Every structure is written in structure tokens, then in C-alpha cells.
Simulated assay, not measured.
Amino acid sequence: MFFEFGLKDIIDIVLVALMLYYVYRLMKESRSLNVFIGILVFVIMWLIVSQVLEMRLLGSIMDKLVSVGVIGLIVLFQEDIRHFLYSLGAHRKVNNLVKLFMKSNKGEVDKETIMPLVMACMSMSRGKVGALIVVERGVILDDICETGDIIDARIDQRLIENIFFKNSPLHDGAVIISKQRIKAAGCILPVSHKQDIPKELGLRHRAAMGISQDSDALAIIVSEETGRISVALHGEFQLRLSAEQLESILTKEMLLQ
């Protein structure tokens, strides 16, 4: 066995270890770690019983459980599986590889799209008006838009400020920007369950993190408590942004969409 162990086997072990680590990290973020550990223990026991100890009766029972359990796992972890597959497809290196074989549609970013967003955020920041704005990029957010009210209006500073005015019926939800237009308002976003989000960040920040984990969208947050402007992108926060920094991020990321 030792002499038959070659480079291909080493690569095989490393790839399996990386896959298990990635799944472990994903389950830890989604609070399904204990279930994942339980499944891992069961698989190890199954291998020991059927392959090492060769217990035919117990092994056959566990074989049946494994064959049926695959369907159960798909149902139980459907959200985690979707997130895992999305994370693979949205990985920067994978995206760069795909872009090599696709035509690029990059062009000039329209300042009339970006500046009203920046000015509205700065105005709401000064007045400590809470806001959550999601800029759609590659992943279509039609399912998120359906949770709110469709507006389909051009991007306008006063309109954005009116939506997030404290007495407005839509101020608690998120505004979705799609194809350089305000597509919907009052939308409900998925909330992130990451454990490392600072405690001083509220529900708006967790919702922004959630949509940035589930899609490639860019989420802008204006804190109601502090007035600080933040951005969530690719599952990471960029906090305490100035007007220049926000404009730079929007220009760069909208060019890369």
C-alpha cells in the first residue's frame, strides 16, 4: 500500500480536506455546525462498520440509511447548498476565468447614477436618517423586489430621502437599484447569521451582510444611531466611509459588474 501511494493520492487527500474545511466554515457561519459534525461522525462509523469491521447486517442497515439520507440532506440543507454553490460561482478567481471567455460590456459609469446616491447618503448621514440601499449587479434580485413595492423610477436624491423619511411607510425596508433605476422600495432582505459582526452594528447592517453573502450585490447602509455610512460587498464590511470613498467604491464596482 505504501509504494502504491503516489502524487495523485496526495492531491486527492488535499482536495477532500479543502472541501471539508470549506463546508465546515460554511456550516459554522450558518449555525448548522453541530448537524454537520453529527453527519461526519455517522459517515466515519459507517466506513468503520462496513469496510473495516465488515459487519454485514449493521453495515447493510447503515447503507440503506446513507442512500435515503442523501435526499434528506438535500432537503435539510437546501439553503446551505445553494449558498455553497453560489459561493463557488461568485469566487473572484472563477469570475476572472469566466470573463476571459466572455465579451466585456464595460463602459463609462454614468455620474447621474452615482452622484444622487452619494448625495442622498451624505444628506441622510448628516440628519442621522437610517437607510439601506442595494445596488443590483450580476445576480438578478427580482425575488427580493417582490417582497416590497415596485417603483421603477429614475435615481433621484430627493426621492431616496423621501423613501427613508421616518414617517414614510417604506422607510424600514431596503431600496433596490437595478439597471440605473430605483426598481423597488420597502424590500425585505435575508439576515446574516455571521458571528463576527460587531455588536454595535444593527439589523440594517446584518441585512446588508445577508444580501452581500447571497448575491454579488452592493449594499449601502446609513446608520440611524451614528449617521455613519458603510458598504457590504462579498460578505465584508467597509465602515465609516466618506463621500469620496463611497463614490470611488460605487464607480469601481459598477464598472466590474
Rank of each mutant, 00 (worst) to 15 (best):
I61V: 15
D63I: 08
K64C: 06
K64T: 09
L65Q: 04
V66Y: 11
S67V: 11
S67K: 11
S67C: 06
V68N: 00
I71M: 15
I71S: 15
V75N: 06
L76N: 01
F77E: 00
Q78N: 06
E79S: 03
E79L: 03
R82D: 13
F84A: 15
L85V: 02
A90D: 11
R92D: 15
V94K: 01
N96Q: 08
L97V: 10
V98D: 10
L100P: 06
F101S: 13
M102Q: 00
M102R: 00
K103G: 06
K103M: 00
S104D: 08
N105S: 12
N105F: 10
K106I: 12
G107F: 01
E108T: 15
V109A: 05
V109E: 04
V109K: 05
I114C: 09
P116F: 00
M122G: 10
M122Y: 14
M124F: 10
M124V: 11
R126E: 13
R126Q: 12
R126M: 07
G127I: 04
G127K: 14
K128D: 08
V129H: 13
G130P: 07
G130D: 10
A131R: 02
A131G: 02
A131E: 01
I133F: 07
I133W: 02
V134P: 13
V134W: 08
V135R: 05
V135A: 03
V135H: 05
R137S: 04
G138Q: 02
V139Q: 07
I140Q: 15
L141C: 09
L141Q: 13
I144R: 07
T147E: 06
T147S: 09
I150W: 14
I150R: 14
I151C: 10
I155R: 04
I155F: 07
F165H: 08
F165Q: 09
K166Y: 03
K166L: 06
K166F: 05
S168C: 10
S168V: 07
S168T: 03
S168W: 02
S168N: 10
P169T: 13
H171T: 12
D172Q: 12
G173N: 03
G173I: 03
G173K: 02
A174K: 04
V175K: 06
I176Y: 03
I177D: 07
K179E: 11
Q180E: 15
A184R: 09
A184K: 10
G186Q: 03
G186R: 03
H193G: 12
Q195H: 00
D196S: 02
D196E: 01
I197R: 08
K199T: 01
K199G: 06
E200G: 02
E200A: 08
R204Y: 07
R206W: 10
R206Q: 13
